[in-house]
């Protein structure tokens, strides 16, 4: 079979999936138009799709994206700057690792985001509270993955470093850390995803600024097409970040 024919054949399933989604939206549109579905509860999909341009013009969606993105960047920097050293320290001091590893693992499953009222009390309703909350949520995967990465350095490489009389710092910087980078990157990726979802969720809950707040605002105004469009946009933002980081992680694993 020719290469173009193989590529065409490979595109059939994703095209089928996309067409299914379009068919679903078209069905909803039709049911709304004939009155089977209530258009005061579900908006016309066509109106929702067309609202996206309105969101950019009237609701300054681009500015909101920058607001959300800047919070994400700060949160990721925090989790990297704090999480990697904590993970390194726990790897180095065995007693500390035994004492605290299960705490971090437990925190990973705890509903940390419900601490947000406390952060509102302590830090006020603002960017600081959102970023710090998201940072706490994203910290645990970075710590756990850093430990995992450092612990799984091949023994042979450590022996090599010692036979070359590397100092502890030299061993760490030239052998342990590079070997652990794929795992650390994986932790940062998971942390980034946690930060993103928490930031958008908190913007929605606290009604401060950003993409999340827009959903809140439009739903209060009972702007149904706008609300659905904003939700769809938030889904696209998260999915894009997930896809981009997935590609980046694969590149890191191939290169390092």
């Amino acid at each position: 079979m020719r290469p173009w024919a193989t590529r065409l054949r490979a595109a059939v399933p994703p095209a089928f999936g996309a067409l299914s989604l379009i068919a679903f939206l078209a069905t909803v549109e039709m049911l709304l138009r004939v009155g089977v579905l209530n258009r005061f509860i579900v908006p016309f999909p066509s109106e929702a799709i067309l609202s996206i341009s309105r969101l950019f013009i009237d609701e300054h969606l681009a500015v909101r994206c920058i607001q959300t993105a800047s919070k994400i960047v700060v949160a990721v920097v925090i989790i990297a700057v704090v999480g990697i050293p904590i993970g390194t320290a726990l790897h180095t001091w065995v007693i500390a690792r035994r004492a605290y590893y299960s705490w971090f693992a437990g925190l990973a499953s705890a509903p940390l985001v419900i601490l947000y009222p406390l952060f509102l009390v302590l830090l006020g309703r603002g960017t600081g509270a959102i970023v710090l909350m998201a940072g706490i949520a994203g910290l645990t995967p970075v710590v756990l993955k850093t430990i995992e990465g450092l612990q799984s350095t091949p023994v042979g490489l450590v022996k090599l470093g010692k036979t070359m009389q590397l100092s502890n710092f030299g061993l760490f910087s030239k052998i342990l850390l590079p070997a652990a980078l794929p795992a650390i990157f994986s932790g940062l990726r998971i942390g980034l995803i946690y930060c993103t979802t928490n930031i958008i969720a908190l913007e929605f809950l606290i009604d401060f600024d950003g993409v999340g707040q827009l959903i809140n605002l439009l739903s209060y105004r009972y702007d149904l097409p706008g609300t659905y469009a904003a939700i769809a946009f938030a889904i696209l933002v998260c999915a894009t970040i997930l896809l981009a980081t997935d590609g980046a992680e694969r590149w890191v694993k191939r290169t390092l």
Binding site: A201, L205, T227
Partner: peptide, 14 residues
């Protein structure tokens, strides 16, 4: 995967 990525709280208005 795409729909799973978003925080579910944003579906609350719906």
């Amino acid at each position: 995967y795409m729909f799973a990525a978003a925080p579910k709280i944003v579906y609350l208005p719906i």
